[in-house]
Design a protein around this nucleic acid. Structure first.
Length: 561
RNA sequence: GCCCCCGUAGCUCAAUGGACAGAGCAGCGCUCUUCUAAGGCGUUGAUGUAGGUUCGAUUCCUGCCGGGGGCACCA
């Protein structure tokens, strides 16, 4: 629709101002307030001259031949030209929403592109704490938005399975042995790993002797030279990965690719050495990249021992990604504390493989912090992702005591609602912004919240289940067009959210839609009214749109709640 | 010291250079003889500060104040 109107406006401008170039680009967009219309153009302001006069001229030309998808064109404010969609067109939109069903909202913004997203990088042997929830929730939503925009998306998780933290955890396992059977719960296994890491970290700080032992263990892990240590390492890694998988399942993420640091370390080392003297240089015994030439800073790629650092591994990871496929775009989502780091790494990469570097984009998400005190896996006072989900589920359970949900479905619904509450609190704001986490404030079921959106869809579906009348969008005379107008904007919102990698735009839209529907619901009887078939069409379209929108956020819609 | 990001109602957040800056929470007052009150209706309340660019600035530029992050062998 936006394109259609833009074409119309462009044609009219050519007629009114033949051969004149506007001072600025003429655009058609959604006005901030829907009361002004469904779309607006700045055409009258963009051309020089009195905006009101310009607008009048444009208006008279459009009105001479008003397309049937518009019911009105008007001038307002400083000279905006507002377009209002006609009831006839809105009825057609409703009909097509119902026809398209789960496909409604799909758009061509990224049509045909192959995109790789990398977004949850937890470390085996460490707990999956709530900080890991951020990239997962954001990454999953962006992946889905891109899929709705026509892209083929594959998801990757990159995990640190080598490094000092592992040595510490294995040292802890050796000095604090516990017999845990394979059949025991993953919760118990990962709690033990978490403890072992705490034990090892403390020991590392306590004495030089321990420090040395841990470094030795680390070297043995790296070389896989000690059978007993290999056994502990392999078991711990397996437990961690199984545990992560369990969490991904609850969150609704499925990765296509898993890459471990140990798999790219060797190639990273080789890559840096091969470009020594060209891209990298030696400095103080290490191999570094001087980023100052590009306004950045210097970073170490190979340490004094000649071992690859994170930066070298990331170079190899980037090339590995493109050996899988010629991605049109490779998106990496990490904490924003890595923003500067990524600039340097990509700068180095652009000297080695510019065609690859040019297609990589890094996005830094905000940090999840606590109002009181810090969280540290070294201290062992982390809030794990699992415990947050469980605490939230407990609240949902309280709330559901009175609900109609059948016993055997409760667990499933509790999960969906709890996950919705958590995901919403992350996605409602801009990606780069920190979240000061406070359980009572961040996890909400009322007002603007994930469960509020789910509730709206459930309520709409509940109405639909109570009648056998067939929804029919045609008979809309005398009915408010507000809801239909909201629905007509969904595709534009989905497209913009994808283009800007901005799930919060979709969140805001869904809240507005929910509010409009609930308001409609409170003041109109649907079943049994004269307008039943039309109101059912609206209700059905809302249910579809809400479910599709929530889906793009990675939130499931329960049947009942 | 250098570089990057952020300051919007009491609190937590929205807002594509435009039209009276949107919500929710908290507060106050209503609202289930209609289909899920996790709802609806009403009400109080905000762009850190000083300049600049622009017909028009929360948005762009500069200074100041305040907060966060990064800057050599961790990831």
């Amino acid at each position: 629709m936006q394109e259609k109107l833009l074409a119309l406006v462009a044609g009219v401008c050519e007629e009114v101002f033949p051969g004149v170039t506007p001072r600025k680009e003429v655009v058609v967009e959604r006005p901030s307030d829907m009361a002004h219309g469904d779309y607006a153009t700045n055409a009258a302001l963009a051309f020089s001259g009195n905006p009101k006069d310009n607008a009048d001229k444009i208006l008279s030309v459009i009105n001479k031949n008003l397309p049937d998808y518009l019911s009105g064109v008007s001038v307002a404010g400083p000279g905006f030209i507002n377009f209002t969609l006609s009831p006839k067109y809105l009825s057609e939109v409703l009909t097509s929403v119902i026809k398209e069903g789960p496909k409604f909202g799909h758009n061509p913004a990224f049509a045909g592109l192959n995109i790789l997203t990398e977004y949850t990088d937890p470390n085996p042997f460490k707990e999956f704490h709530i900080g890991h929830l951020m990239p997962n929730v954001i990454g999953e939503s962006i992946s889905r938005l891109l899929e709705c925009a026509g892209a083929r998306v594959e998801r990757m998780s990159y995990q640190g399975d080598v490094g000092l933290h592992i040595g510490k955890a294995v040292w802890g396992m050796i000095h604090n042995p516990q017999t845990i059977l394979d059949s025991e719960s993953l919760a118990k296994k990962t709690a033990y790993l978490g403890q072992s890491y705490v034990v090892g970290s403390k020991a590392y700080e306590e004495s030089e002797e321990n420090k040395k032992e841990i470094q030795e263990i680390n070297e043995k892990i790296f070389k896989r030279s000690d059978a007993e240590i290999n056994e502990l390492y392999d078991r711990g890694k397996r437990w961690s990965l199984e545990h992560f998988e369990e969490i991904y399942k609850i969150l609704g993420t499925a990765f296509d690719h898993y890459v471990f640091e140990s798999e790219v370390a060797g190639e990273g080392q080789r890559l840096v050495r091969a470009n020594l003297g060209k891209v990298f240089e030696e400095s103080d015994g290490a191999v570094v990249y001087k980023g100052e030439k590009n306004g950045l800073h210097t970073r170490v790629f190979l340490n004094k021992q000649g071992l690859p650092t994170y930066e070298a591994k990331d170079l190899a990871l980037a090339l590995y990604k493109f050996s899988l496929r010629e991605w049109d775009l490779s998106l990496t989502i990490t904490g924003k504390e890595q923003n500067d780091y990524f600039r340097v790494m990509l700068s180095a990469l652009s000297e080695i493989a510019p065609e690859v570097a040019g297609r990589i984009r890094h996005m830094g998400h905000g940090l999840l912090r606590f109002a009181t005190g810090k969280m540290s896996s070294r201290e062992g006072n982390v809030v794990t992702g699992e415990s947050l989900i469980n605490d939230t589920k407990e609240l949902v359970r309280q709330k559901m005591k009175e609900s109609e949900v059948p016993e055997d479905k409760r667990e499933e619904v509790e999960n969906m609602v709890a996950v919705a509450a958590i995901k919403f609190s992350i996605l409602k704001q801009g990606i780069g912004k920190d979240i000061i986490f406070d359980f009572d404030q961040s996890i909400s079921f009322e007002g603007d919240s994930g469960p509020y959106l789910q509730y709206t869809a459930v309520r709409a579906n509940s109405v639909l289940g109570k009648t056998s009348m067939v929804p029919d969008a045609r008979n809309s005379e005398g009915e408010s067009q507000t809801l239909a107008r909201f629905l007509a904007h969904f595709r534009d919102v989905m497209e913009r959210s994808a283009r800007e990698y901005a799930p919060q735009l979709l969140v805001t839209y869904l809240l507005e839609l929910a509010s409009a529907f609930n308001s409609f619901y409170a003041s109109n009887k649907i079943i049994g009214s004269e307008k039943e078939s039309y109101r059912l069409a609206l209700t059905k379209a809302v249910a579809i749109t809400m479910e599709n929108g929530l889906g793009a956020l990675g939130i499931k819609t329960p049947k009942v709640m």
